[in-house]
Design a protein around this nucleic acid. Sequence first.
DNA 1: ACACTGTGAGTTTTT
DNA 2: CTCACAGTGT
Length: 749
Amino acid sequence: MDLSILNPPQKEAVMHTEGPLLVLAGAGSGKTRVLTHRIAYLIETCHADPYSILALTFTNKAAQEMKSRVEALTGDESEGIWVMTFHSFCVRILRAEIDRLGYDRSFVIYDDSDQVSLMKKLIRDHSLNPEVFKPRNILSEISRAKNFSLDARRYLNETHASSEIISLFNSYQKELKKSNSLDFDDLLVLTNILFEEYPEVLEKYQNRFRYILVDEYQDTNMTQYRIVEKLSEKSRNLCVVGDDDQSIYGWRGADIRNILEFERDFPGAAVIRLEQNYRSTGNILRAANLVIANNRGRKPKKLWTDQPDGAPVSYRPCATDQDEAMYVCSEILRNITSGYSLGDIAVLYRTHAQSRILEMHLKNYGIPYRIYGGLSFFQRAEVKDILSYLRLTCNPYDNVSFYRVINVPKRGIGPAAVSALESYAAERDLPLLTACMMLEEGALGKYEKKFRDFSELILQAYGSLGTVPLADAVRTLLQKIGYDSYLRDDKKENYEVRSQIVEELVGFVDQFASEYEVQGPDVLQAFLENAALYSATDDLDDTAGAVTLMTLHSAKGLEFPVVYLTGMENGVFPSERSLYESDRLEEERRLCYVGVTRAKRELHLSGARERFLYGSASYFPPSVFLREMEQALPEGALEPPRPARKQPADSPASGSSSGRFPAASPAGGSLFGNRTSDLSGTPARKTGSAPVPDVAPGSRVLHKVFGLGTAVSVTGTGANAIAEIAFDSGAIKKIAVGYGSLSIPEEGK
DNA sequence: ACACTGTGAGTTTTT
DNA sequence: CTCACAGTGT
C-alpha cells in the first residue's frame, strides 16, 4: 500500500494503530483518506482480520463512500469489515440479541411520522390538549432524554419534566414495546442497555471488534459515546475522527463535549491534527477561518493551504428573494459559459423552505437541478401506506401500521368500528391485527366480517412470502386491496404521479429481493429495515448533469467547485431562534463554516432584504456572518447600495419595487442578460404560471429515476401535462411533466 | 361513514 | 402560502 501520498500527520494517524487516537481533521484535510488508508494499513500491514474492524459513520452515504474506497485500496481483503452507520450497526446487534430485552427479533423501526401518529393517539388517550402538548415537542423531549442519559426516566425526573410528559413517556415506551417496535433512539439506547446489562454479550463484541473507527465524532451523542466506549474498553484501539468546528447537530443531541474531552475520557490518547486543507482556494479558506474565529471554546487549530488565493469571495445583496434567485441563476449561466459543468455547482440554504423560489427560477432559466433532502421517497404517503401493509405481515404487533391502513383504501371501517375493536383487543391484551383474526362470533356485530377480511388479507400476504418472489407478493397485495383504483378515484392529487410512485416502489422491491438467494419473510424484513434507515440524502449520484440544491446540513461532507450560499440574513441564517442565544449562535456559525468550506474554487454569498415567508413579506438585515467575513470580501462589499439602513432591524424596504418580478437589479445590469445561453435552447418563460420543462413530442428529456429518453406524445398542457416517454433503457412510461422528475438534459445528449 | 369546507397554525436543521 | 384537522351536511 502506498503511504507516500499522505502528508506527515496523515501518515502518523494511519500508522498509530494501537491505543486511543483522536484525529482532529479540519475541513478538507483528507479525513476520509486517513480513515480508508488506516483500514487498509490495518489489513495489509498489521494483518488484522477484516472481521475485527468496525467503522461507524453517521450517514449511509458516508458509509458507502468509505466502503468503496476501502475496497479500491484492498480489493477482496475488505470482505468482512463492518462499515456502517451507528443505527445500522445497532440494528445488526439487536437483530441477534434483542430477545434478551423482551422484544422479538422481528421488530420494526418506527420513523418520524410513525412516532408522531403514535404520540398523537397517546395524547388523545390521556385526554390532554394537543395545543399544549404538541406531539413533536413531546417527542423531542423524549428523544433528548434518551440520548442524554442512561435512564431516560430518571433524566425526565431530574429535569423536572411535567408529570404529563413523564406519563406520556411511559405510555410511549410501553406502546412501542407492545408493538414490538423501536424508534431511532431506541436502536442506540437498547444496544447500550444490552451491553450494560449483559456483560457476556458485550464481551463477545469486544473480542470481535479489535479496531474501532468513528467518523464525524463531533456529532456523537451521549448514548453513542457510551456504546463506543464500552466496545473499545478491552482493545483500547479506538480511533475517532472529527472536527469540533463542524459540530452542527447539537439540536438533536450531539454532544460537542465528546470530542472536546476525548483525551480525558480515554487516558493516554494520542491527538493528531490535520490542518492542511487541500480543497479550497486561499480566499475561501480565509473567509472560513475568519468566521469560525468568532467561536469560543474550540480546540485550537489553524487551517492553511498552499493553494493560490483564487477568485475573491463575492457577496451580492438583493432587494428580494426573487432577485436573489435570479442572480443565482444568471451567475450559474455565467459559470457554465466559463467552463464549469452543472454538477460542479451547489446552491446552499438554511431551510428547505428556501428552495422553492430557487427551483421556480431555475426552471424558468432552463437550468437542470436536483434537490437533496426534503421528504424522501420512503416518506411519501403512497409508499408509507404500502410499507405499512408489509410491516404488518412481518410484525402483527405493529398497531401504528394497523391504524394507518385499516381503512386505506376505504373499506367502511371508521372510528366507531376501530374503537370497538380496540376495546375488544384491550380486554384480551391482543394487538389489533391479532384481535381481528381471533374475533369471536358475534363479538363486534356488523364489523366482524370486515375485520376478518382484513386480517385474512394480511395472512395471505404473509403466506405468499415464502412461495413467490417478494415483488409478486406486493403486486398481488396491491391488486387485492385495489390500491390502484383507490388512487384513481381519489381525485385530490394527480393519479399518474402517484401510481408512478407505487410502480417505483415495486421496482425497488424487485431489485432489492433479486440480490437475495433465498426468498421469504427475512427478505421483506431486510427491505423494511433499509427503507426505515434510508434518508433523502442517500442517493447522491455524482454523474447527474444538474445543479445541486440542498440545506447546509446535508452539504456536510461534500464539496463543489462552485458554491452559492444564499439567504445570508439575520433571522434566516443565523436563524431567528439562535440570534439571542450564544450557544445556538455558535452552532449556526459552525454551520456557516461548514457551508463556506464546501467550496473549492468559487464562493458566492447572497442575501435578500425582503423575503416571502408564510405568504407575506418579511424584512431581514444582512447576516452577522457577513460582517465577520468582511476582510475576505472585496472592498466595500458590505456597504449598502443606497444608504438606506442605518438601523437595519426596523427599516422596512421603503423604496423596494412592489412587483414580484422587478425588471432589473439595483446595480442596473440586466439579470436577463444571459438568456441567450439558456441551456435548454428554449426561451425561458417570462411569467411563471407553470415553471415546468417544455416537453413536446420528440424532445429529449432526463428523468430523475429512469434517465434519458425521448417524448413520444404529450397530453395536457403546462404543469398538468402527461408525457409518454420512451426511455433509452427501452422502457416506455407516462410521466407527469409538472411533478419535477423531468428536466431537459444538457446539450448533445 | 364519508366528503366537503373553512379555520387555524406553522418552518430549522435528520439518523 | 400550504397543510392538517375539526365541524358540517349528506
